[in-house]
C-alpha cells in the first residue's frame, strides 16, 4: 500500500528531488512497480479523455435571467443569521455555552473598540463545532466586528481590607 501511495506522489509531482531519484531508481529495477505506474497513469488518461458537452448557447442568458429576477442580495442581519443557525444542534450548544459564560462573567464584559459588542469566550468551556459551524461563527465575528477573546481575564483578587 505504501508503494501505491508513493506512485500517487510520484505521478502528482509531490516528491522532493531525492525521494524522486530513489523512486525512479526503484522503478528502473522493478517491472512490477513500473507496470503499476503505467496502469495508474493510463487509467487517469482514459478518464481525462472522456468527452464533455459544451454548455447550451443560451445558458448564460438563462442564468442571468434568473439572477435579474431576484432581489438584490443583502447581508443578513446578525439576528437573521443567528435564527437560521440556531436550528443546528452544535450552534445551539455553542450559544448556550456562551450565554452561561457571559452570565458568569457579568461585570467582566468590557466594551470593545468603537463600542462594538464584545463576546468573551471562556477557553475552559469549549464546545466542539463542525467545520461549517466554526465557519459560521468566524463569519459572524468578521462581519460584525465582534472581538473574540480566547481566554477570559481572571477577576482581580479582592483586596483585603
Amino acid at each position: 500500500m505504501d508503494g501505491l501511495r508513493h506512485i500517487n506522489q510520484y505521478l502528482d509531482g509531490r516528491m522532493g528531488p531525492d525521494e524522486r531519484e530513489r523512486f525512479e531508481a526503484e522503478l528502473a529495477n522493478s517491472p512490477e512497480l513500473a507496470a503499476e505506474v503505467a496502469s495508474t497513469r493510463e487509467a487517469i488518461e482514459l478518464l481525462r479523455a472522456l468527452p464533455l458537452a459544451a454548455a447550451p448557447d443560451d445558458l448564460t442568458d438563462r442564468i442571468m435571467g434568473s439572477v435579474r429576477a431576484l432581489p438584490r442580495p443583502v447581508r443578513p442581519s446578525l439576528m437573521d443569521a443567528l435564527s437560521l443557525q440556531l436550528r443546528r444542534p452544535a450552534v445551539v450548544a455553542f450559544a448556550g455555552a456562551m450565554t452561561v459564560v457571559m452570565a458568569l462573567l457579568g461585570a467582566n464584559l468590557v466594551g470593545g473598540p468603537g463600542d462594538e459588542p464584545v463576546v468573551v469566550i471562556n477557553g475552559g468551556n469549549q464546545v466542539r463545532l463542525s467545520n461549517s459551524d466554526s465557519q459560521f461563527v468566524n463569519d459572524c465575528l468578521a462581519d460584525y466586528q465582534v472581538v473574540a477573546v480566547s481566554s477570559v481575564p481572571s477577576r482581580p483578587p479582592a483586596r483585603e481590607e
Partner: peptide, 20 residues
C-alpha cells in the same frame, strides 16, 4: 447539468454578500 449550473450561479449570487 445546465439546470444545476444555473442553480449554482443563482445560489452564489444570493450568498455573495457573505463571501469574504
Amino acid at each position: 447539468a445546465a439546470d444545476l449550473t444555473q442553480e449554482v450561479f443563482v445560489k452564489v449570487y444570493q450568498t455573495l454578500p457573505r463571501y469574504r
